[in-house]
């Protein structure tokens, strides 16, 4: 895994926060407990949506937490691309296309090699190494024949076993493989952090998200469990979630039936606790710089975990 320089760019496209770079995705997950949701699929097989791939879509809360921590910045990808590609010089473009061709050739070569290895392996398994050796011999002979350019030796090298394909596939001209790059830098330069967009707009349950994130929890969207976040004590690939979290305003009224009884039952039924929480307004310094008071604001969040008492 290549190391990722911080802050890393997060693309803002059509109201979504996306990461296209695999290394950045791994970095965000390992270092910052940010999972996001994979939304990429194969364009012509969009119904294949069980295992999705890049890009990774971040919740606005995730993007905000990364930006507030100084780990990422938001980039308006549409204007960046319009500007970047329309103003690109011909020279740069040709260089980029050559690069792509070169990479395509490498891939094609690799694929051909892999195919040959596969054939070799399959033949060996069937005990037909002989064919392989013959092929190799033939190749060698052909090259020697061509170099000698003698007509007589042609008859001597006639195949002894007629079952084998008479001519080893001639060295076809390799077509470059067409590569779809997942990121656009290069050719575009890494976007300038100075031109970053402002902080992402977040829903009102953001304080709870930030609070849980500051305690090292991983959060995933909680719509499956009828809450805002399903909260994991570690990487969701390794742990079951501990909490179904619902964020509330400090003075927002809630029904006991909905949240405590319904949520508590649901949570207990799936061996989780139902967590409600929100920010206590008394401790927020309204004049203070938002970045500076982030730590204090984390402290002002109050959360309650609920479980069925069992009787």
């Amino acid at each position: 895994m290549a190391s990722v320089a911080e802050p890393f760019p997060v693309s803002y496209i059509g109201g979504r926060y996306l990461i296209f770079d695999v290394d950045t995705i791994a970095h965000a997950r390992r270092e910052h407990n940010i999972c996001g949701v994979f939304i990429g699929t194969i364009p012509n097989l969009s119904q294949q949506n069980v295992f999705l791939g890049i890009p990774l879509e971040l919740m606005a809360e995730e993007a905000r937490v990364l930006v507030e921590g100084g780990h990422a910045y938001i980039v308006d990808d549409v204007t960046l691309h319009k500007k970047g590609f329309l103003e690109m010089s011909r020279e740069d473009r040709m260089k980029y296309l050559r690069d792509m061709d070169q990479q395509g050739m490498e891939v094609a070569r690799g694929m051909k090699q892999a195919a040959e290895d596969r054939t070799e392996k399959a033949l060996k398994e069937k005990g037909l190494d002989r064919i392989l050796q013959e092929r190799k011999l033939k190749k060698l002979e052909q090259t020697t024949v061509e170099s000698e350019a003698g007509a007589g030796s042609l008859f001597d090298s006639a195949p002894s076993t007629p079952t084998v394909a008479s001519s080893p596939a001639p060295e076809t001209i390799l077509e470059p493989h067409y590569i779809t790059p997942t990121t656009s830098h290069p050719p575009l330069p890494v976007p300038d952090p100075a031109s970053a967009l402002s902080l992402p707009e977040v829903p009102r349950q953001y304080p709870l998200f930030r609070y849980l994130h500051s305690k090292g929890y991983f959060s995933m969207p909680g719509i499956r469990f009828g809450c805002h976040y399903s909260v994991y004590p570690g990487d969701p690939l390794r742990f079951h979630s501990h909490f179904l979290a619902a964020g509330l305003d400090w003075d927002e009224e809630f029904d006991l039936l909905d949240l405590v009884v319904g949520g508590g039952r649901l949570g207990t039924g799936v061996k989780k606790a139902y967590l409600i929480g929100g920010e206590a307004p008394s401790k927020i310094g309204s004049v203070e710089d938002k970045q500076a008071s982030a730590g204090e604001r984390v402290e002002s969040v109050r959360a309650f975990s609920m479980e069925w008492a069992g009787f």
């Binding site: 909490f243 309650f304 975990s305 609920m306 479980e307 069925w308 008492a309 069992g310 009787f311």
Partner: peptide, 16 residues
């Protein structure tokens, strides 16, 4: 009457 346990803070759930 139904009974629920409410904890102050983030308390991990019981493995019942």
């Amino acid at each position: 009457v139904v009974f629920y346990i409410v904890h102050d803070g983030v308390v991990k759930p019981r493995q019942n």
